[in-house]
Amino acid sequence: MNQFEEQGEIVRQEQLAPEIFRLTLTAPDIASNARPGQFVMVRTNPGYDPLLRRPLSIHQTIGNEQLQLMFKVVGKGTRMLAAMSPGQRLNLNGPLGHGFDLAGKQAICLVGGGMGIAPLYFLAKEILRTSKPPKCVVLLGARTAAEFGPLPRDFMDIGVKETHFATDDGSLGHHGFVAELLKHHLDPANNWTVCTCGPHPMMKAVVKECRGHGWQCQVSLETMMACGISACLGCAVPRGDLSGPYLHVCKDGPVFKAEEVAWL
């Protein structure tokens, strides 16, 4: 098991949008072992409030030393994380869980909504790094254009040729849901593999669309987590056929084949 606990040193804290931050830290053991779709457990407060670590996806690794987290402030833990500054140390452990599996795929579509975009950037980077990269389309959704921050540029800079946007208020791209973009932009002649991460209803719509076309779909799930390392059994989700033992998001996931899990 290549897992490590590290005192990551913060090298950069950027505010990308009113409530969205990107934290860069030096954590060589985790960074050099991380795969797209994996996550870390972050101790946002060395004291007892909040008590539990917070799960955050790895947004990208930079070289073999650094990793980036991208997060939205939604409560106490993420607020404390947003208040941290360069030079400070942050205790985290990882890399945890199983990432995306895209070996041999020729046409890949990444669909991200809200903070679900975070792990997809790492994934896009990995896809395009290979000598003969497969076709790669990126579809991103948010409430409003400002929430994307610098991400549209970031995806372009790493060589993603086709990125489409959807916003709830129409301020960028399609006025509506990101899942609707699949219909508009994916040529059904291709055998797509779709990777998605974001709010549950969004992923559910993406899964449905993929099922209609017979496309493979990989989903990254979120649940409450106490340990992140398969010890507490708190992160249970039902299997696709609703029978048998529960799956555990921190160990069996967070990335699953869509048909492995139930879409209730």
Binding site: P50, M224, C232, P245, Y246
Partner: peptide, 22 residues
Amino acid sequence: RGNPPPRIVETAGGMLNAIGLE
């Protein structure tokens, strides 16, 4: 099999669990 999710929730200085002895 244990209990259905959600099984855990954080509380002040602690947590509640209902894993259900999976």
